[in-house]
Design a protein around this nucleic acid. Structure first.
Lengths: 255, 255
DNA sequence: CGTCTTCAATAACGTATGTTACATTGCACA
DNA sequence: TGTGCAATGTAACATACGTTATTGAAGACG
């Protein structure tokens, strides 16, 4: 539905040519699928076939233990790409499920081959995406290991807010926020009850206004302070623009 | 000092030619540096210049909050590579410090350029490394969010054990284990005291023998069960061999 | 070959967060 | 425009883990 968020995000980092735009545009309209809310797109154990680009809606990556304990390990927002090059792995070690209704474009191995061969800027942009996602995962490790419930929740909200803003999905100080307290519990490693307590506290402190499916952040700086939030890990600075990533062409050898 | 662990590991996944071997060998002998134990190799905020290959010794990636709380977000064992392509980012969002004395080879941007252009197998292998590291980071998220102290500790020990074994660094059921209880605390998000309690419990259950700087795992299957350990995320299966990664050449354009 | 420092072990006590249970609100859909 | 189910809110109580403190053992180093 909308490629705009992806392009907007990537262009923060790398300047894309009009040909690059055309390539991405084509890729994101060729093989599109639609899902309802709360369904799985990919299941643990499956063979990864395509890379998925989220065109609209929210999704998450999650893992589950045999006894049912569930951890959301990342959220996908519009414009996000799930795992460049996963198809070199034999099977998925986690599942991907939707939060809201979602539209995705499937990007094939062949697409990446072609891009790789002729569009270094897109490659660089995808590498940036890969590295930022890794950094986000590290920051979650930090949050779960060291931050208190309040800090952790505030941190997650800051992160989502900044990512949405980069994708052009905020209006003023508010944004759509389809996550339930159950989702937040699965992502922060807290119980639902404690998520509720924590949100109440953030509300009482005037750091967030969360009602229905809308979040407002009236004082981002204060929320960031409460979270001990350092935005460096999102690598949103523009200075990297002059670089191209290396890493490199297929030659299509098999064996 | 020893490239063997890297090669052994990569060849589990991709068959490398003798030319590939030569390339890696050259890269790992050209620019080698040595560090003592408990010193920083890279500090948060610095501009990443090279990619580091651990030739010998143990190191870790860590992040720290303003108030001093510290989280180890990953361990580097011999043969591990720190962040392929980091140099496209402007600054490090974490630090890398040694545990033991460490020797590293610095791999330059130019090295990756060259490899990218002519050695698709190595590229594939590096992608595998990248994807596995991402999977490990997700699994840590799972551990910190959902596993109890005992499960978490057991899980970490299983993971390290399997990674060491893949690198050819175990003998029978034992291995070198230079981590202090403080290191384990920083990695698991537990206090040192509780790490001690947890290790006692694992010992009492006969799941580990940990003394001095040596760890033995007499019953790996039992330790894995205690950890709810599913090895799929390490993607150690060999089936992927036939694949080459795509993602792709620089053309050396600057923006 | 003592001395220093780090690491490991253990105890007593405190608390952030989990659990269970139930009431209330909101919203999809008949 | 009810009616039902999911999501939110609250309370009482339980516990896994943190904190502080002290002691002993083990390497490091002059």
């Amino acid at each position: 539905m909308s490629l705009a968020s992806l392009v907007r995000k990537l262009e923060q980092f790398v300047r894309l040519s009009s040909v690059d735009h055309a390539i991405l545009n084509r890729a994101s309209t060729e093989r599109v699928r639609h899902f309802g809310p709360r369904v799985d797109i990919v299941r643990e154990g499956e063979k990864p076939k395509d890379v998925h680009l989220i065109l609209s809606g929210w999704a998450c990556r999650y893992k589950q233990l045999e006894d049912g304990r569930r951890q959301v390990v990342s959220f996908f927002l519009p414009g996000d790409i799930c795992d460049v090059n996963v198809f070199i792995l034999r099977e998925m070690d986690h599942s991907i499920g939707t939060i809201t209704a979602v539209s995705i474009a499937d990007l094939s191995r062949e697409f990446f081959d072609k891009v790789a061969a002729a569009h270094p800027r897109i490659v660089t942009a995808f590498w940036w995406e890969t590295l930022v996602n890794a950094a986000i995962q590290r920051e979650w490790t930090m949050s779960l290991g060291q931050r208190t419930a309040l800090e952790r929740m505030a941190h997650l909200l800051c992160e989502i807010w900044l990512r949405l803003r980069l994708a052009g999905l905020t209006r003023g100080d508010s944004c759509d926020f389809p996550l339930t307290q159950g989702d937040l519990a699965d992502a922060t490693g807290l119980s639902k009850v404690h998520v509720n307590r924590t949100l109440q506290e953030l509300r009482a402190d005037g750091l967030i206004v969360l009602k229905g499916k809308t979040l407002a952040v009236p004082k981002l700086d204060r929320l960031m302070r409460a979270a001990l939030f350092n935005p460096n890990y999102l690598h949103m600075d523009h200075e990297g623009r002059q670089f191209d990533a290396v890493m490199t062409p297929p030659d299509a050898v098999a064996g």
